[in-house]
Structure formats: structure tokens, C-alpha cells
């Protein structure tokens, strides 16, 4: 029997969002098909992987992912340069985890200074993340937005509790923002609606439906992302058309599978490779679900995911 492939045409399109300035500018999104369905439409931009760096040394990262950055992780500027020059990072995500009240509790001014220094050192796009403490993030990210004025950074993450302040600062200083909600397509959509109702352009948003690691709720993130993409493309739902973020590293490198030594769990195999695989598998699954921007940690995992992306294009 002759076969005619049933190709789909989608009514919607993911916004294409440019980040960074000058030569380093990158673009995410822009496709009018499901992830890697280039056989039935256009997907002009590859997904972008950002290397995660921090404002304070990564004391809580497991050994295997600390090691590659040993020489540079005491200083965010060195760390950023290393990612850009040695690892050929396409983007860098600076997590201001040191501002968390239970951590170093660094001030918003300190954070702003770090942002300035890192920006001066690299030319790839910069994602600036708070410490995920809704209350503290508000002043920290306002200061960071100001420090990075007009550099077209991605500021995150705006949540229901603090989106007003963060979105206003990002708007005033010409940045993009990440809107994060808690693993539910409706909550994600609601937050996007609330933010755009403040006058923030929806073309400047990046949606983070909340990540989860392989084996720790990945299926929820996977399906929420898949549903968001379908809503954007098949229902032309404008509130679901921003590109999506998978904040992979921080979820992966805290689960048992990336930390437990082989000696304790012989049937789990080599820790080093297991950890890298955990991050790479989580990342690839979310790419297939629809993430366009990833934040990752281990250079080897990034390299392998990048290789897979090339094979998918």
C-alpha cells in the first residue's frame, strides 16, 4: 500500500527571542513545529545550552561536577571566562546563590557588582538568576537588572510572589525575563498572563514550567512542556508561545544518582559516568519535550547533548 506521510501544519509559532548584544547575540525559539520536526516546518534556531556559574564557590556541588571547574570556581569572572574561552559556551547562566539568606546572604549591591564584573569579562549572552528565595530575589534581581542595563540579559526567575518587581526592573532596563511556576500548565499560563497584563511584552518572556531530574518527577516536566508546546503550536495560544527553559543542572546534581559512590551501590555502576549521563539524559528528554534553552553544569554532558542536537538538526 502506498504511504503518504501525514504532515501537520501548525497554526502557531514559538516566539524567537534574541539574548545578549553584539557578536555574542544568540536566539532561541522561532520554530513553527514540534521539537526537531524539521520535516514539516521551520526550526531556524538550535536550542542553546548555557553553562551555569555561581557568585560563590560551589561548595554543595558533588565532586564529579566540581572538578572540571576546580581552578576557576573561586571567582565568577575566571569561571565565566573559562566557560566562554575553553568550553566554547554559547551562553552563561550566573546564579547568585550567595545572596540566599541561608547561604552567604550577600547583599543586592554585592550581587550587582558580580554581574557587572562578569559582563565585562565575557561577550556571550548572560542569564542572571537569583537564589530562588522569592523575597530576597526581588531586590537582588532589581539591582542586577540595573547593573546590566541594556545588555539584553535574561533575568530570572520571576514567580507569582515577586513577578511585579522583577518584571518592572527588567522592562526598565531592557532585559528578558524567565517566568517560573510550579509544574502545572495552568499555573504557567496564568503567570504569563499576569506578567503580560503589567504591560510586559510577551515576546520578551521565557517560560520555566519548573524542571525536575530524571527519576525525580521528570515525567511531569516532560508532559507539561509537551503540552505547552502543543498549545502554542496547535491552538495558537499566544500565552504559551515563549521559548522554554530547562534549568537542568541544579536539579540533577542534587539527586542520589549523581552522588552515591559505586562502592555503596555496585549495581548502579560508575559514579562519574552515571552523573554525567543523568544530566545529559535529563537534558535530551526535555529538548524532545520542547525546551529551547538549557542551563547545565558538566562540560562532558553539555558536549554530548550538543552532539546529539547536531544529529537532530
Amino acid at each position: 500500500m502506498a504511504f503518504t506521510p501525514a504532515k501537520e501544519t501548525y497554526s502557531g509559532k514559538v516566539y524567537s527571542v534574541a539574548i545578549g548584544t553584539g557578536e555574542g547575540t544568540g536566539t532561541v525559539g522561532g520554530e513553527n513545529v514540534l521539537p526537531f520536526h524539521s520535516f514539516e516546518g521551520a526550526a531556524p534556531n538550535r536550542p542553546v545550552i548555557a553553562f551555569e556559574i555561581q557568585d560563590v564557590p560551589p561548595a554543595d556541588w558533588p565532586e564529579s561536577v566540581k572538578k572540571p571547574f576546580e581552578a576557576v570556581s573561586d571567582d565568577p569572572v575566571k569561571w565565566a571566562r573559562f566557560c566562554q574561552d575553553e568550553l566554547k559556551a554559547k551562553a552563561i547562566a550566573l546564579r547568585l546563590v550567595g545572596t540566599h539568606p541561608d547561604r552567604e546572604n550577600r547583599s543586592a549591591e554585592d550581587a550587582a557588582k558580580t554581574v557587572k564584573d562578569v559582563l565585562a569579562a565575557v561577550n556571550v549572552p548572560l542569564i542572571i538568576l537569583g537564589s530562588n528565595h522569592a523575597e530576597k530575589d526581588a531586590p537582588v534581581l532589581v539591582a542586577a537588572s540595573e547593573a546590566a542595563k541594556d545588555k539584553n540579559c535574561v533575568i530570572g526567575k520571576a514567580q507569582e510572589a515577586n513577578y511585579k518587581t522583577i518584571a518592572a526592573a527588567a522592562m526598565a532596563n531592557n532585559h528578558k525575563i524567565i517566568a517560573m511556576s510550579e509544574l502545572d500548565i495552568n499555573l504557567s499560563k496564568q503567570l504569563n498572563i499576569l506578567i503580560t497584563q503589567m504591560g510586559f511584552e510577551k515576546e520578551r518572556l521565557i517560560t520555566d514550567p519548573m524542571c525536575s531530574a530524571l527519576g525525580y518527577g521528570l515525567e511531569y516536566t516532560y508532559s507539561v512542556m509537551e503540552r505547552i508546546r502543543l498549545a502554542a503550536l496547535t491552538q495558537n495560544d499566544a500565552t504559551m508561545q515563549p521559548p522554554m527553559l530547562g534549568d537542568i543542572g541544579m536539579y540533577v546534581w542534587k539527586v542520589k544518582e549523581t552522588q552515591a559512590p559505586e562502592a555503596d551501590l555496585p549495581h548502579w555502576g560508575s559514579l562519574e559516568e552515571r552523573g554525567i549521563a543523568w544530566e545529559a539524559v535529563t537534558a535530551t528528554a526535555l529538548l524532545v519535550a520542547g525546551a529551547e534553552l538549557l542551563i547545565m553544569r558538566h562540560p562532558k554532558a553539555v558536549e554530548e547533548v550538543q552532539k546529539t542536537i547536531e544529529e537532530l538538526i
Binding site: 559516568e273 554525567i276 545529559a280 535530551t284 528528554a285 524532545v288 554530548e304 546529539t308 544529529e311
Partner: peptide
């Protein structure tokens, strides 16, 4: 590892 990622797909 690359094989594993094709496995994901």
C-alpha cells in the same frame, strides 16, 4: 553516552 542519548529519543 551518545548511544544513551539516542536511546532517549
Amino acid at each position: 553516552l551518545h548511544e544513551a542519548l539516542l536511546g532517549v529519543i
